[in-house]
C-alpha cells in the first residue's frame, strides 16, 4: 500500500523517505520536491499525476537513483539505492523511448542484459519471448527507424522487463504517442507487470491511464498526496 509516510515492510521494493530536491535557477533556489515519501510493495502499481513542472520527472529520476536528493533516504528492497544495483533492480521506460538507433529491436532489448552482465542463449531467448509478448516477434530484426512510435515504446517496455526487475518506473510513457497507441502501451505495461509480479510506478498526465493503477497519487506543491 503506498503511503506518503514511510512504512517499512519486508515486501517493500521501494522506500523513499523525506526526499527533497532544490534546483538553482540563476540566483533563485527552486524547491521542486519537499518531503516526498513513498513506499511501493512488490507487484503493486502506483500512478503519479501532476501538472507540468510539478516535479514528476524529478521524482522519477530520484526514485531511479539517476539523481541524488538534497535530503532524504531511498531504499530498494530494503537496501540503499546505488547505481550498481540499478540494472538488476530497476526497469525504466522513458517518454522518448531512447532506443539505440544502430541496433535492431532484439539487440536493444538485449542491451539491458548485456549491461547487467551478459547476453547468452537464455537471455536471447527471453528477449525474443518479451518481444513476442509485446507483439513485435516479427519485428525483432528491425531498426528503431523502421518502427512506429508505438512499436518503439513497446520495445522499450520489453527492454525494461528484460532483467526481470522488481520495479518498473515509467516516466510518461505515452507522452509521444497518440491516444489509441498510448492506451495499448499502458495496457501492455500493466498486463506484463501484473503477469510477472513487477511493481510499477507510472508517471502520467492521463487520468484514464492513472486510474488503471491500483493506487493513484498526485504530486502537488512538491509533495505527494
Amino acid at each position: 500500500m503506498p503511503a506518503t509516510a514511510l512504512n517499512p515492510a519486508s515486501s517493500s521494493v521501494l522506500s523513499a523517505d523525506g526526499l527533497r530536491k532544490t534546483y538553482l535557477s540563476g540566483v533563485q533556489r527552486l524547491q521542486v520536491l519537499s518531503d516526498v515519501s513513498l513506499e511501493v510493495a512488490a507487484g503493486e502499481s502506483v500512478s503519479i499525476r501532476g501538472e507540468s513542472g510539478s516535479g514528476k520527472s524529478t521524482l522519477i529520476n530520484l526514485l531511479a537513483g539517476l539523481d541524488a536528493p538534497d535530503v532524504g533516504r531511498l531504499l530498494w528492497f530494503g537496501q540503499p539505492a546505488t547505481p550498481d544495483r540499478r540494472a538488476e533492480f530497476l526497469g525504466i521506460v522513458f517518454q522518448s523511448f531512447y532506443l539505440i538507433p544502430e541496433m535492431d529491436a532484439l539487440a536493444n532489448v538485449l542491451m539491458a542484459a548485456r549491461i547487467r552482465g551478459g547476453a547468452g542463449a537464455a537471455e536471447r531467448s527471453r528477449a525474443r519471448d518479451l518481444l513476442g509478448r509485446v507483439g513485435l516477434a516479427e519485428r525483432a530484426t528491425h531498426l528503431p527507424a523502421q518502427l512506429s512510435g508505438g512499436e518503439r515504446q513497446r520495445v522499450a517496455v520489453a527492454r525494461a522487463l528484460m532483467n526481470a526487475p522488481k520495479l518498473v518506473l515509467a516516466d510518461e510513457p505515452t507522452g509521444n504517442l497518440d491516444e489509441r497507441t498510448g492506451d495499448a502501451v499502458i495496457e501492455l505495461l500493466l498486463g506484463l507487470c501484473r503477469e510477472t509480479g513487477t511493481a510499477l510506478v507510472l508517471v502520467t498526465h492521463n487520468v484514464a491511464h492513472a486510474a488503471k493503477c491500483a493506487h493513484q497519487l498526485t504530486l502537488r506543491d512538491g509533495t505527494l498526496c
Binding site: 531511479a64 539517476l66 547505481p83 550498481d84 540499478r86 540494472a87 538488476e88 530497476l90 525504466i92 522513458f94 522518448s96 531512447y98 539505440i100 542491451m111 539491458a112 549491461i115 547487467r116 527492454r159
Partner: peptide, 13 residues
Amino acid sequence: TREIGLLGALGAK
C-alpha cells in the same frame, strides 16, 4: 548524449 544517458540509466558504469 541521450544514448549515453540511457546507458547510465540501464546501469552502465
